[in-house]
């Protein structure tokens, strides 16, 4: 049974991410689940299940995310520090890390030696976050993962002017009722989201390379459009969703 030196738990608003690393910081396992309302019970259940295959008795636990208050951990750190750590260790370079999560977007400037120089998060508004696409997908009864495909294959684009996740929904419906093609509208929706993220990136000052994390980084249309808007090909980890939890686990190693 392999010994897990440190476990990082990222209890986000939409998903729960758990990553275990060995003493060298190598990822031993990673788990991503939809977040339960009772995240502390969910975490305990996942950790108990892990005990079947791993030795986690002496593992350090570092928690981050909105649900981290409820989780028993050796240390609690913000998502900013965890994402910066995870991304920096993964790519071994400073630059601009962009995490597009379910409810929060973060743009983090990382120095050459891995220190957070500056960060910005969306304010009390979920425009441009994962929820923006999820809401519309749900309203249109399209699986979220199909949204990107529709946008990528679209031969046209409708301008969506509202960046409000709630108002965009009614704008989408009104475009459709006026006979606009579904894929054109969905592509426009992606564009609105990407423009919002781009403006956040410029607000802290873009410093290449661009490194993406968070669930939305798996959306190929978002990635392509970010490249179009910024003129820079984003670097994406194999599993972008777990970068915060990975960073948390790495922080645990130095505890």
């Amino acid at each position: 049974m392999e010994t897990v030196k440190s476990i990082g738990i990222d209890a986000g608003s939409t998903t729960l991410k758990i990553v275990g690393v060995n003493e060298k910081g190598k990822i031993l396992f990673s788990i991503v689940e939809d977040a339960d309302p009772k995240v502390e019970e969910q975490t305990e259940r996942v950790l108990n299940k892990l005990k079947e295959n791993y030795d986690i008795e002496s593992s350090k636990i570092v928690a981050t995310g909105y649900g981290s208050n409820l989780i028993k951990a050796d240390k609690k750190v913000t998502e900013i520090t965890c994402h910066a750590k995870g991304i920096y260790e993964y790519f071994k370079t400073g630059g601009t890390a962009v995490d597009i999560g379910g409810q929060d977007n973060k743009v983090i400037l990382i120095s050459k030696n891995g220190k957070v120089i500056d960060f910005i998060m969306n304010d009390k508004c979920a425009s441009g976050t994962g929820r923006f696409l999820e809401n519309t997908a749900w309203r249109l009864k399209i699986p979220t993962e199909k949204m990107a495909e529709l946008a990528l294959n679209s031969d046209g684009e409708v301008k969506i002017s509202s960046t409000c996740a709630v108002f965009a929904e009614s704008e989408v419906i009104s475009h459709l009722s006026r006979g606009q093609k579904l894929e054109h509208v969905i592509k426009g929706l992606h564009r609105a989201m990407v423009k919002r993220i781009t403006s956040m990136i410029y607000a802290v000052g873009f410093n290449p390379p661009l490194m993406l994390s968070g669930g939305v980084a798996k959306n190929k249309a978002v990635v392509k459009m970010l490249e179009e808007e910024l003129g820079e090909k984003p670097m994406i980890p194999e599993n972008p969703q777990i970068m915060g939890a990975f960073g948390a686990a790495l922080i645990g190693l130095s505890q």
């Binding site: 913000t78 998502e79 900013i80 929060d104 957070v116 009390k124």
Partner: peptide
């Protein structure tokens, strides 16, 4: 206009920085 959790997380990240 005050979002408790958001404010806490931003302040904490600011302090960590």
């Amino acid at each position: 206009a005050f979002a408790d959790e958001q404010i806490k997380s931003r302040l904490k990240a600011f302090m960590e920085m």
